[in-house]
């Protein structure tokens, strides 16, 4: 007979029932997955990237399947922050797990204004600031590729957002540790990594790029070793918590990130393959802890 192990983690000032979150852009607003997953069984979920104004995103085709993954070039299609507040947020009122809004913008003022409008929403205690979208010209990656740019957005949002502030980092940089340190110094409560890796695929029969934008973001199990390595490096260097993501499909994959130093994880692209993946990852982490007679998930964090 085993006691149920504890899966609860603290992301700085944000307690989570378990370390499993969903990656922005892969889980809609949660409601799309309600037939497959008890949303309250997750640590929380991060909703689709939200911008100040509605965005139509990039032209079709926006997706290409690649070995163990996919490229996307959605380009932050979303209804804008007011649409979220007026039409989505009220439908999330019965959910007890943490709802985290991913915030994107083309200018620092946009990020700040989105945060200002989200502030009155009681259930939104955390935001994830996207400074790493590779698919729009000023979609944040411009900020996320230099320590100065990353710090500038983080500082401005910090002044406008009293709740938990997570900053999502781009892997398309020379030193992700330098960016992470800059974001930490600018007042972030946590960092999440990695966003997609910039990639490209060509249809040789048609002699054309697979994506309308030519390049796009690579995600899925193909990127996982890169993500685990970056999480390990960043977790060693930072004092704030790290949230790991990149190709998680199972509890074992999630535990790689946790052992590399992540306090929480996000399940992303695999939601497209297995719509019940998130809840299964929670169960598989728990099974692992029972099997190895570990009473608390926190014992495994950063053991590598």
């Amino acid at each position: 007979m085993h006691n149920k192990p504890s899966l609860a983690v603290e992301l700085g000032n944000l307690p989570l029932a378990n370390p499993v979150l969903t990656a922005s852009g892969t889980f809609g607003y949660g409601l799309e997955y309600a037939d497959f997953v008890d949303l309250d069984s997750l640590g929380g979920f991060i909703v689709k990237g939200t911008t100040l104004e509605p965005r139509q995103g990039n032209p079709y085709p926006r997706m290409a399947e690649t070995p163990s993954g996919m490229l996307n070039a959605v380009g932050l299609q979303n209804g804008g922050v007011d649409h979220f507040i007026n039409h989505i947020y009220p439908r999330l009122s019965n959910i007890t797990s943490e709802i985290i809004v991913n915030v994107s913008g083309a200018a620092v003022e946009d990020y700040v204004e989105v945060c200002r409008r989200l502030q009155p929403l009681d259930r939104i205690r955390a935001i994830e600031v996207n400074i790493s979208c590779p698919n729009v010209k000023q979609g944040g990656m411009a900020f996320g590729t230099t320590p100065e740019g990353a710090a500038r957005v983080t500082e401005a949002v910090r002044a406008a957002w009293p709740g938990h502030l997570m900053v999502k980092l781009s892997p398309n940089v020379t030193s992700i540790v330098d960016i992470a340190l800059a974001v930490q110094d600018a007042g972030a409560d946590s960092v999440s990594l990695i966003n997609t890796l910039l990639g490209m695929a060509i249809d040789v029969e048609r002699r054309r790029p697979m994506l309308s934008t030519i390049t796009g973001g690579l995600s899925g199990p193909a990127v996982r070793p890169v993500a685990v390595r970056m999480v390990w490096q960043v977790a060693k260097a930072l004092s704030i918590p790290v949230v790991g993501l990149g190709g998680i499909t199972s509890g074992r994959d999630a535990l790689e990130f946790i052992m590399a130093g992540a306090t929480a994880v996000q399940v992303g692209t695999y939601n497209f393959v297995d719509p019940a993946a998130t809840a299964r990852v929670v169960t598989e982490i728990e099974d692992y802890l029972i099997r190895h007679n570990i009473s608390d998930i926190n014992e495994l964090r950063g053991i590598i």
């Binding site: 139509q56 079709y60 997706m63 996307n72 939601n271």
Partner: peptide, 27 residues
Amino acid sequence: ENMMACGLGACLCCVEKTVDGHLCVCT
């Protein structure tokens, strides 16, 4: 039959340009 990933309206990959903007073919 636009190319799609999730089929659930989450990934926004299969969009078709409509009079109401980009809409998911899957949903």
